[in-house]
Amino acid sequence: MDHLLLALQNSQFAYWLSQGAFPPIITVHSAGMALLVGLQGMINLRVLGIGRKGLPIAAMRRFMKYVWIGFWMNLCSGILLFSIYPDKYVHNTLFRFKIAFIVAGLVLGAVMNSTLLSVGDEYGAAGTSAPARTRALAALSLACWISAIVAGRYLAYSTFADIGASAG
């Protein structure tokens, strides 16, 4: 396994990624994050009660399509970023935490959605409150996404120092 990762890391492809292709890839990764965490965060905050007076919870489900667009943008760009230093990432505790937070955020979000957003009419009207159990799921999922962002930022400084990706 390590042998394979090292071969990828030493490949022309990984070299090309670490040079000219790096800025556009992290740009896509950031934009995807804004869509994924931004819109998922808005849905979770509505479930937690913000904007309850006028916003029907069920209608917020429509934003999920764009959450998934953000997710696929970040999965694809994330795989490319991983390809640059696979050997470093795979042994990096922060990276493992980041992936764990993302998986947990996705699972908790899916459970939240299945119990709430897909039920339709019951939460179709404005002014409805989500049950306490679902609010707990929303809070946990939000915490996971924020933790994934923080882990990702610290990860950049623990692996990318030697290619000069510091400022900004």
Binding site: A59, R61, F63
Partner: peptide
């Protein structure tokens, strides 16, 4: 980055609603 998701999450939600996504969501 957390600030960016708060800023752009709200902005994108409003912009996407205006563009016709999630039309069931009232804008106000």
């Amino acid at each position: 980055f957390i600030g960016m998701t708060m800023l752009l999450g709200g902005v994108f939600a409003i912009d996407l609603r205006v563009l016709g996504v999630a039309r069931a969501v009232p804008l106000a």
